[in-house]
Computed example of a mutant assay.
Amino acid sequence: MSTTGTVLASTPTQRLLGKVALVTGGASGIGESIVRLFHIHGAKICIADVQDNLGKQVCQSLGDEANVVFVHCDVTVEDDVSHAVDFTVGKFGTLHIIVNNAGISGSPCSDIRNADLSEFDKVFSVNTKGVFHGMKHAARIMIPKKKGSIISLCSVASAIGGLGPHAYTGSKYAVLGLTKNVAAELGKHAIRVNCVSPYGVATGLALAHLPEDERTDDALVSFRDFTGRMANLQGVELTTHDVANAVLFLASDDAKYISGENLMVDGGFTSANHSLQVFR
């Protein structure tokens, strides 16, 4: 075999080469992993986030000013999302992929009688309205071009109850409903619309409800231990990279006939109920 053949055989295929992507909430957590993986696979990327310093640090760490840029964006504000889309198109010429990743968990509340409706509105504003803003303005660019992939971050809380506060669970069920409905509308334009639903992932979001001084490494370890014990798939830890890989698949041409799908990245968690201890 020639040297060239050896190099090609050992080099992973860049599955997004020539593609342009916008990732909301791309400055940290799952969003940052998506940005880094998309970059490895050849995409040109705009990171849209309210965390300006972190977003700019991700861009600098990738060292690719021509292909990775940052724009400030609050997904609850439609003009911000519209501007982020226009900024991406202005920088890279088009938009092939949007990942609606920005989200919040909200504060725990174990008694509906104590629910704070302002908190409820805030969670829906980020998690649901923010996703809809992304879908709407991505479609504005994608419909005339008759192609595109819209991917939203959902949750195992979109499949069964009891996994999060009411606002969070309701917002994620709404993201799934929007995914199916927008997929139904945009199918005639060859635009695919999907969502990804991970099990618990140890990120800053998992601890966001805690006071600042309690968001420690020990707290993350405790979260990992708890989700590990409760998981269906034992001996394997779910990471942000695993979720990013699922998003990459849906963004790529490998998923060219997949639309309206809620891809569960949960090790079978939502398919199994071990409460009767049949297998444990």
Rank of each mutant, 00 (worst) to 15 (best):
M230Y: 01
G162P: 03
H133E: 06
G130T: 01
D79P: 01
S275E: 12
A66G: 02
N262C: 10
V23F: 14
T13K: 14
K145E: 15
V123A: 01
Q51K: 15
S155C: 04
L248P: 03
S252I: 09
A43D: 10
G90Q: 05
R140D: 07
V99G: 11
I160P: 00
L16I: 08
A48Y: 14
V201L: 05
P211L: 04
I104E: 00
L17R: 06
I98F: 07
S107F: 02
N100Y: 08
D253E: 15
I45P: 10
L8H: 05
D213C: 05
L250I: 08
N114H: 10
K180W: 00
D225C: 00
V35T: 11
H39N: 06
R192L: 12
G106C: 02
A21F: 13
C59D: 08
D52K: 15
S61I: 02
F87C: 12
T227G: 00
G204Y: 05
A115N: 05
D218H: 09
I160A: 07
V247T: 11
C109H: 01
G134A: 09
A246Y: 07
G29P: 07
H41L: 07
S149N: 15
A48P: 14
N232V: 13
G26P: 09
S152W: 04
T13G: 04
K56G: 02
R140Y: 07
V193T: 13
A251S: 15
D266C: 10
N100M: 06
H209P: 00
T216S: 14
R15T: 05
T3N: 09
F279M: 14
S158G: 03
K136I: 03
S10I: 04
S171W: 01
C73V: 06
V50P: 04
I47A: 12
T216V: 09
V265N: 04
T76E: 06
A244K: 07
L205P: 04
K147Y: 15
A115T: 13
L205T: 07
K129L: 10
V89L: 05
F120Q: 09
A184P: 00
S271H: 04
V71W: 04
K188A: 15
S259H: 07
G106M: 05
E65Y: 05
G25D: 10
N273V: 14
S118T: 14
F92A: 07
V221L: 07
E261M: 06
H274I: 08
